[in-house]
């Protein structure tokens, strides 16, 4: 009933702006959504597991006698390696289908976003294929990471000059 009323409003709208707005509201009604709770739960346990593996790897490398800082670096390398391997074996997208944010948020998601276009675009050549496209998804992350930390660093530097921090 509600939907029928919406359709009427769409077709009887006076101008395009109103029609488009009504139509978008109607579309929202008829478009099915992922179960939010299920997605959130999946993201929780998958993301949690990836972080726990990271924690385990850190302890593993510390048990080899590395200090904590270096152990964390080796942990990052290991997670990135595993993620790229899973991407190459076409397993990462299968995990991501269930995990959602659970596989996007950890560093493994970043590694996946580097490896996936590199593999996909290899046919377009070393320079314009792999070389350019490897940054299609990860490039913005690096760029805005550098920009934001630079700006915040500048503020920190200026505040330091003023003797505030």
């Amino acid at each position: 009933m509600e939907k029928e009323k919406q359709v009427k409003e769409v077709l009887s709208a006076k101008n395009k702006t109103e029609r488009d707005q009504k139509y978008n509201e109607y579309v929202k009604q008829v478009t099915p959504k992922h179960s939010c709770l299920k997605n959130t739960c999946n993201a929780f346990w998958t993301g949690g597991i990836i972080c726990t593996i990271g924690q385990g790897l850190t302890y593993l490398y510390m048990s080899f006698g590395l200090d904590k800082e270096n152990a964390v670096l080796y942990q990052i390398i290991s997670l990135v390696f595993l993620s790229v391997l899973f991407t190459g074996l076409n397993l990462y997208p299968r995990i991501a289908k269930v995990a959602g944010a659970g596989s996007v948020v950890p560093i493994t998601g970043f590694a996946n976003s580097v490896a996936a276009p590199a593999i996909e675009y290899q046919k377009e050549g070393q320079v314009f294929g792999i070389g350019c496209k490897i940054f299609t998804i990860a490039g913005p992350v690096i760029l805005y990471g550098i920009v934001s930390s630079w700006i915040l660093g500048l503020i920190y530097y200026v505040l330091g000059l003023l003797g505030i921090v």
Binding site: T31, P32, K33, H34, N39, T87, G88, N90, Y92, P93, I95, A96, K97, A99, G100, S103, V104, G109, N112, S113, A115, A116, P117, I119, E120, Y121, K133, T136, I137
Partner: peptide, 17 residues
């Protein structure tokens, strides 16, 4: 997919629509 969306090995969730 490659042209309009993402590389195939990239992990993302497809909406139900």
């Amino acid at each position: 997919e490659k042209q309009f969306r993402f590389p195939l090995a990239y992990g993302n969730q497809r909406p139900l629509a």
